[in-house]
Amino acid sequence: MKYWWWKIAAIVIFCYVLLAGMLTPLKPGIQSIDNTKGILGEELVVGVTGYNSYFGSALQNRAFLKLSDDKVIETHQITERGDYKADLRFNLPDHLSTGKDVERATLIINNEVDGSLILPNAILLKKEDNTKPSDKQWGQFNVNELFKADRFRFPYRNQLNETIRNTFFHVAIWFAMFILLITALVYSIRYLITKDLLLDTKAAAFTSVAIVYGLIGLATGAVWAKFTWGAFWTADVKLNMAAISVLIYMAYWLLRSSIADVDARGRVSAAYNIFAFVIMIPLIFIIPRLTDSLHPGNGGNPALGGEDLDNTLRMIFYPSIIALSLLGVWMSNLTYRYQILVDNEIEE
């Protein structure tokens, strides 16, 4: 029990990640709208398609077009067609009162079952030359009047949809890979200090599992990219930097296999491991921040956090990192024990 409790923990936590990560539904969201242009002073009709929504079952549907907190108009009529479809009708005012002729408005739908469904920058409001005068005015927005639905659900993001769950696997495996690489680095440094060959073997085992994790990260990333960005492989910086770091560690393995003498192999590969890790830091953490990237946290995109990683996601994301790291340690441990057997064989 003393030696394998963490292996059980890895399995249990990973099962929790799979179950909670796959069974928790997404928050309701607005999947698409059939009209994105509204002319001021006229009636705007928008057909909305919701995702995971309950328009039909809810009794008190309300919808708003919002420019800012004190410039909001409410629908005068909502026609629900089932749980997922609804037609909204707005009587638009004849001015934007910001001095501009064109502005994007946010669409908000609220009912007692779903809470609020928000689609930012949904509708382009435009002033035409022959705008008819209308007595309709922009109103105040009262957040307290809205219904709230605080259930445990993952955030709904357009374009991402259900693939937001990939955070628990794709992002977590990169974190786990990094933890394994740091462990290998520590073993390499300790090897250079103590010259204990077992430490070098350990560093090699951790690196080999980290390479497998890196390949998994690249493959899963390719699938995720296909369904959100449209291509398996893009020119995205972070993707290519990650691919390069996998190459660097594959070269580490090639280097190890090309040196026969055990002591020289240990010293050289430990030195290369430390050197490569130090160079990888600007590669992964600094350069992606300088250039535009599709990944969150780079080139002006919001970092991990905000709406990409809210508290509900965190409750599964962090355990996932722990589970995958423990699995990686377990696999490295097996590789290490195998290598020790092989080395003993050679000595005999």
Partner: peptide
């Protein structure tokens, strides 16, 4: 259905590659 099956593909890749490593070992 909201691209849920691409998540399944991601999990499958994770599982298959880890299994492949273990089978090799």
């Amino acid at each position: 259905t909201g691209k849920i099956y691409s998540v399944v593909v991601v999990i499958l890749i994770l599982f298959i590659l880890i299994s492949a490593y273990l089978i090799r070992l």
